[in-house]
Amino acid sequence: MYTQGLDHSGPESSASHAEGASAALRFQARIDAEERIEPKDWMPEAYRQTLVRQISQHAHSEIVGMLPEGNWITRAPSLRRKAVLIAKVQDEGGHGMYLYSAAETLGVSREQMTSQLLAGAAKYSSIFNYPTPTWADVGAIGWLVDGAAIINQIPLCRCSYGPYARAMVRICKEESFHQRQGFEIMLALCRGTPAQQRMAQQALARWWWPSLMMFGPGDAESKHSAQSMRWKIKRFSNDELRQHFVDVTVPQADYLGLSVPDRELRWDATAGHYRFGEIDWSEFQNVLKGDGPCNRERMAARRRAHEEGQWVRDAALAHADKQRARATGRAA
């Protein structure tokens, strides 16, 4: 899902050079043997670039993801919910940091990645371009979006690149609390007043299809998936992950007493899976291109934070310089 905007166009590793070809073979052999690739290990340039884009998009998603839920921190309906929400959003910031850290091991700097994001040149998960107009949306995000993220992230714990895999292990440990808090919010609403139940149902209606889109287009569309699979950056296909998400989530919606907004949804006993309706991929493409409901607001918020924080970051560096100069002066 963090490869939604990845464009693999451009030359693959130039295997035309004999040395490069044998290095690439050795590299592939390491991957096939489930060895981890670590920073500074030889790697095809395309592998490195794919990872930089995927990891940075994942990191950007976490950071932008702080905004739709952060929107409700000041209005959380109870002190407990407020505390849990602050902790969750804080975790998301932390996840972004683990991922930026991992990306930086590949030779790109946080500054470069941030600049790309703010210039609109980098992508982040489409899901965070949807609004959270009600408290129930906070619950829906935790339940559905974090639920989808977990399904995607668990296989990534075994991805071939060491720092990314380790960041994912850290993230997965923290993520299950996120999904539980979301589900708990929905549960409280569904057990509550008619107005609360309506709020929950409407939130599910808003977030169901965007959550399915998070997994990215079907595998028939994605020829680049094959290379990512060979390099063990990707472990399962988009469709497999999406199917798994539907299979585990529909029973949860049933438990809540909520209806999934898909008239074609039905259990296929023979296959042992839920069948579901067609996704509107044009909506997905629009959101990716920047024309989703909140793309502009999300980017504006991140740009403002960055610009308004410039004087603070500069001051900290200036102070550090002064301290160093004083220390040198004292030593002299």
Binding site: M97, R110, R313, D314, A316, L317
Partner: peptide
């Protein structure tokens, strides 16, 4: 492009008796 806060690698000792382990990195001015 302005100067950015330098990168620091972080090592944490989880419990006394264990060594410090590398866990990732942070940016900081000092």
């Amino acid at each position: 492009s302005r100067a950015e806060w330098p990168l620091y690698e972080v090592f944490i000792r989880a419990r006394s008796g264990l060594e410090h382990k590398h866990v990732g990195s942070v940016h900081a001015a000092d």
